[in-house]
Amino acid sequence: MPKLSTGGRFKSAVCAGEIMVVTASEDDVTLTCGGAEMVAPGSEVADDAQVHPDHAVGIAMGKRYITADETIEVLCVKAGDGSLAVNGQLLLQKDTKQLPKTD
């Protein structure tokens, strides 16, 4: 997989999950969901595709996920059963600070 770019969208090859890249790094990385490399939004998912048991916590719509060094951040735009990972390292869920409603 080439470099990620901000705004880029990917879908999981093994579950319903979809993400958008919020912050990208300069490095070439491998972004996976459910243990399989993520694919372009319109791609077909094979019927026998399976989520790897070590990457099966799932992702929730509207949650943001980051690498431990916070150089890559993605937003889940469709929920799925697979977990996200960059170069094999699972991403962490980022907390949004609950702010007073202002608009």
Partner: peptide, 24 residues
């Protein structure tokens, strides 16, 4: 630009955080 508006929303609003009966 889209990046400005989307950044503002992502950093200040939790997705689906409003209860169903909320009205603004």
């Amino acid at each position: 630009r889209h990046k400005h508006l989307v950044s503002y929303i992502l950093s200040s609003v939790e997705f689906a955080s409003a209860p169903e009966e909320d009205a603004s």
